[in-house]
């Protein structure tokens, strides 16, 4: 009887210490699910979901506080990916899907107030006080956060059109041809 208890107790101590050691040694910082969700989000940092950036939104989704259909730049495709990852229902996007855009500063009107520079979440605007500003197109995520602070409304959004380098082969579909109507 006593031996059995001792053996069990010993086993419990050994396993317990092993588990305790493992929990310290292999501790995972942060929630790994948040990282997976964040990898799907488009990283525009636009705040259109109501959270201040993509990471807070990813955290809210992981906590179960937020719906998965709040990210307009991610589009319906993003909602589908999130639903796949989280095993949730696919929902229609809670906003209009927008084409990819890039911000453009009208250099004739810019007064050099630096307000847009402070608003840009990805440091894609170059300029200094009372100097004309400009947007580095390759870095702009099209989040539109620079539009409201501009006092002279000199920033506009332009659609990114397809060029030869970004052109994609289309999904092969059978063309539907209009047949001549038989009189």
């Amino acid at each position: 009887m006593l031996t059995a208890i001792l053996i069990m107790a010993l086993g419990a101590i050994v396993l317990g210490s092993a588990l305790g050691y493992a929990s310290i040694k292999f501790k995972v910082e942060g929630n790994p699910l948040v990282e997976k969700i964040e990898a799907i989000l488009p990283q525009t940092q636009c705040g259109q979901c109501g959270y201040p950036g993509c990471k807070p939104y990813a955290e809210a989704i992981a906590e179960g506080e937020a719906e998965i259909n709040l990210c307009p730049p991610g589009g319906q495709e993003g909602v589908r990916k999130l639903a796949d990852l989280l095993g949730r229902e696919v929902k229609p996007l809670d906003a209009e899907e927008k084409p990819k855009q890039v911000a453009i500063i009208d250099e004739q009107t810019c007064i050099g107030c630096t307000l847009c520079i402070q608003a840009c979440p990805v440091d894609a605007i170059v300029g200094a006080a009372k100097q004309m500003h400009t947007i580095v197109g390759a870095l702009c995520t099209g989040c539109e956060l620079c539009l409201p602070p501009c006092p002279v409304e000199c920033i506009s959004m332009a659609r990114i059109t397809e060029n030869i380098d970004s052109w994609k082969w289309k999904y092969p579909v059978i063309e539907i041809k209009q047949l001549k109507r038989v009189a």
């Binding site: 964040e38 990283q43 525009t44 990805v122 970004s166 994609k168």
Partner: peptide
Amino acid sequence: SEIWSREREKNKADAAKARF
């Protein structure tokens, strides 16, 4: 071409995240 374009977008998102 779809895989390439996704790769491009992913890299762009990663760069935007790093900048942010």
